[in-house]
């Protein structure tokens, strides 16, 4: 009499023991990044605040700088997530698609919100919106795991020094200034790269 040992994950043998995530649960293909504009001139900026302390201030400053210094037309939409643990759904994504051309979101600074911010970025890219996701550097592994869960294991985001929540307003402004070049290059395609 030989009996097999049952798998407690509900995901079958092909996923057993994988440290990172399985393939996309809904069977969607690994996404290409959304097409990037050559610059943000005339672009409408979307900001998605994940509710963590200093996130909205950081995003607001980034939005102002993109408009003032990089020719963006306006900040077209700012929303605060109702549940920082849950990735954005089609309803939220479609509001952003209507109101902006690129999205900046974060700041992943906690256990579940960091993972969800990575999933948000992937969802925006799948909807054709270039996204820059900012996480503190304490959440690399959970971000990477969620990228795998979402079927985009190589998805990249912007890392900033942990912690963010204890920074003063002035320090948050400095942080926004510091990360601006990386946010800009994430949202646009450089001439050298030649992507369309």
């Amino acid at each position: 009499m030989t009996q097999t040992i049952l798998d407690p994950t509900g995901r079958g043998a092909q996923h057993a023991g994988s440290a990172a995530g399985p393939a996309d649960p809904q069977g969607r293909p690994t996404p290409e990044l959304a097409p990037r504009p050559a610059s943000l001139a005339g672009a409408r900026i979307g900001l998605l605040d994940n509710t963590k302390h200093n996130a909205l201030l950081f995003l607001t400053v980034v939005g102002e700088l993109l408009v003032e210094e990089h020719g963006a037309a306006s900040v077209g939409i700012v929303e605060t997530k109702k549940n920082f643990s849950i990735p954005v759904d089609e309803e939220i994504v479609s509001r952003y698609r209507e109101s902006c051309d690129v999205v900046v979101t974060g700041v992943g600074d906690c256990g579940s919100c960091s993972a969800a911010a990575v999933a948000d970025g992937i969802n925006f890219e799948r909807a054709g919106l270039p996204a820059a996701v900012v996480l503190t550097d304490a959440f690399d592994i959970t971000g990477r795991t969620m990228a795998g869960v979402q079927g985009a294991p190589d998805y990249e985001w912007i890392r900033t020094e942990h912690p963010m929540a204890v920074l003063t307003e002035e320090q948050v402004r400095e942080r926004a200034r510091l990360l601006l070049p990386e946010i800009l290059s994430t949202l646009t395609v450089s001439d050298q790269e030649g992507r369309a």
Binding site: G10, A20, G21, C110, G111, T145
Partner: peptide
């Protein structure tokens, strides 16, 4: 705890961030 780990796939150092 095992159900959270196995059925939800929330494991320490990965999606579990205690």
């Amino acid at each position: 705890g095992l159900t959270v780990r196995n059925a939800y796939g929330i494991r320490p150092h990965e999606l579990e961030q205690a």
